[in-house]
Design a protein around this nucleic acid. Structure first.
Lengths: 233, 233
DNA sequence: CAGATTAATATGTGCAGACATATAAAACAA
DNA sequence: TTGTTTTATATGTCTGCACATATTAATCTG
């Protein structure tokens, strides 16, 4: 071992990582078992377990009881995206955030939506659209449908003062969601709202949020041209 | 406790999740300390610790020594994207994958690239471009630069037989990378290659891979129109 | 030989106890 | 009052041990 050779959980993990990265342990190859590694590193088995478990969670190791631990053959790199509140995302860029409501009304949701949400066709939902600005330039367009049967107080919320994005975070617990990322050409209306030219490529995030099996909200975020979502492996 | 009331760390975790989701513990509010929770659940402190640590990693709890544990105020939802080998991604869609090399040659890298990679300007790199097909329809365009100083064997690889994507996974260890997602309008060349119309919105992934501080490869993947990257929270 | 049973083994999880470490709060000093 | 030192406390981590569980490998049985 070179550095971080403390027999701490982290030290062991970086050493294991090194052996994987430098092909000391070949992809698909069997790795010594926990007990042996614990002896080698002079630590308890639980410590080795913790180091290896995280690597398995990250997809670098495959572990199975009795069969042992192997170096993953196809290390599908796992990317973690932090999706922040839009206001914070803008402010982190050092820009001033502002929100402008475009429209807010209760109306029957389109069939495509109700069917995806598993609601009866024609269900009334609260449709809120608005623009988020960064330094007074359009940053993204938010097109949202809210399940008012689940969230009746949403009827009385003033979305010209608080963005639907933040109102929901404050008031609507959820247990899971589906997210999709795609690219779309701006239609005339979106182009105008985003101050872009028609046909510009927009980065689009679609998201449906659930509270157990009940849909909470469905939103489409269309970012102004040039937006880029960054992260690290 | 209702179900999963075993005093296992999973059972405890779901119970903690419930209290958070149902606002039993308010956002920003202080949570009982590990010792107290351990007593309440009738388990060891280590078990509570494990349950809470994962929730903290997921961003739902904020923990600080001495200060205690609080329910996160801004639960930035954390999304995990699995980025698979392109061949597998195509095959998982039930389509037949095929790769076609467009061009492969050693040439000085453009300034924009060398500066981002921290290489001397004019450094020679291996430039490989190719198309991945799904059922003989263009699926994505891969435009890749490989650091041949780090990977001299890449010179002799036959990228008409193996995609650069897979060759690198086999031969090039890496320790980290930067990824960016964005949307771009197809230029004439890309439109033709992807069998799309000029100006179509393309979903684009840019990725630079590092082995410690040395750049391994930089790639831009431009997906054919209609592509959507999905995941769950 | 084929199928069912049993044993062996590596990981998964749990417990009690100990010490380490960060840090908020209290006590103290200038 | 203000800055510094001390103390108390909650989390972070490690140990050694035990038992659970999945699953392979060996063994038995018809």
């Amino acid at each position: 071992m070179t550095l971080a050779d403390t027999n701490s959980w982290r030290g062991i993990q970086t050493e294991l990582l090194r052996r994987i990265n430098e092909r000391e342990w070949l992809p698909g190859g069997l790795v010594p078992n926990e007990a042996d590694l614990a002896q080698e590193f002079g630590c308890a088995r639980a410590t080795v377990n913790r180091a290896m478990r995280e690597l398995a969670d990250a997809g670098l190791l495959d572990r199975r009881r009795k069969a042992g631990t192997r170096v993953a053959l196809h290390p599908t790199s796992r990317v973690i995206l932090d999706i922040p509140i839009i206001r914070l995302e803008v402010e982190q860029r050092g820009a001033e955030w502002r929100y402008g409501l475009v429209e807010s009304r209760v109306t029957p949701a389109p069939l495509a939506l109700t069917s995806r949400l598993g609601l009866p066709r024609g269900t009334e939902m609260l449709h809120v659209t608005g623009l988020h600005y960064a330094d007074n330039r359009p940053f993204l367009h938010e097109d949202r449908w809210i399940n008012i049967n689940l969230l009746p107080m949403a009827r009385d919320a003033d979305f010209s003062q608080v963005s639907a994005n933040e109102w929901l975070i404050q008031h609507a617990p959820y247990t899971g969601g589906d997210i999709g990322f795609s690219a779309m050409n701006a239609d005339a209306r979106l182009a105008e709202l985003l101050d872009a030219s028609e046909g510009s490529a927009l980065f689009v995030v679609d998201r449906i949020t659930w509270d157990k099996d009940t849909p909470v909200t469905s939103v489409r975020l269309s970012y102004a041209p040039g937006y880029r979502m960054n992260t690290k492996i």
